[in-house]
């Protein structure tokens, strides 16, 4: 009660200064980066980058083909069925195959070995096993192949550590029609119960011919 008047006048100002100073100190304290981040940055220096492809195995493709009944090919393509080297339309026996790959530049024997149907055939005539199909695909798709070898393309199976097992190209791509086909998505999130469904609609940035937009109603 007996504080000098001048000092009392200072109380609000002092309190404001104290708050600001406290806030600044606090902000510094909570934003200082964690040491773990720093350590990680150092560990990530490019000097230790692995340049060689990681060792890997490709999941065997043949068991699936066998199950499918199309392998071994030699069961039909034996001595009794001589190879006709003339390029022609898809024979009836392989009617399920719609060859779109290559845009008309390929036919069967571009990739399949004429003499031994149980293997594929590279550009230099070298045989390539069905289980190593990435070697065949990579002849043209060499950038993809590089991504595949290092892990940026394709799909690792089972484990992120230890032995690296990769899915073969044809587990995702149809070799005769490799692009991934559009299909129906899994349904959208439902909003929390008790709230009415509200949907966002807005004009697209780039107008594209749409095939009728079914997303107006839900």
């Amino acid at each position: 009660m007996n504080v000098p008047r001048r000092l009392r006048l200072l109380v609000p100002q002092l309190s404001a200064v104290a708050i600001v100073a406290g806030a600044v100190a606090f902000a510094f304290k909570v934003t200082s980066p964690t040491s773990q981040v720093e350590a990680e940055r150092e560990a990530a220096s490019p000097a230790v980058v692995a340049r060689k492809p990681l060792p890997f195995t490709v999941q065997a493709r043949l068991p699936q083909l066998e199950e499918h009944g199309t392998f071994p090919c030699k069961e039909c393509h034996d001595e009794s069925l001589p190879t006709d080297p003339k390029e022609r339309a898809m024979p009836e026996d392989h009617g399920d195959i719609d060859l779109k790959h290559g845009g008309g530049r390929f036919w069967c024997l571009t990739c399949h070995d004429a003499d031994n149907r149980d293997v594929l055939r590279g550009l230099k005539g070298q045989p390539i096993a069905f289980d190593e199909q990435f070697l065949l695909c990579g002849q043209c798709h060499f950038r993809r192949q590089r991504d595949f070898l290092f892990g940026a393309h394709g799909k690792r199976i089972g484990s992120w550590q230890g032995e690296r097992v990769l899915a073969p190209c044809t587990s995702c791509h149809d070799a005769h029609d490799p692009s991934i086909k559009p299909r129906k998505p899994y349904r959208a999130d439902r909003l929390r119960e008790g709230l009415r469904t509200e949907r966002r609609t807005h004009a697209p940035l780039i107008e594209t011919p749409s095939q009728g937009s079914p997303d107006e109603q839900r």
Partner: peptide, 16 residues
């Protein structure tokens, strides 16, 4: 004598 100090704390506290 303590009231002045308590009020000072209270003022800072209110703004804080």
């Amino acid at each position: 004598p303590w009231l002045g100090a308590a009020i000072g704390v209270g003022i800072v506290w209110a703004i804080a």
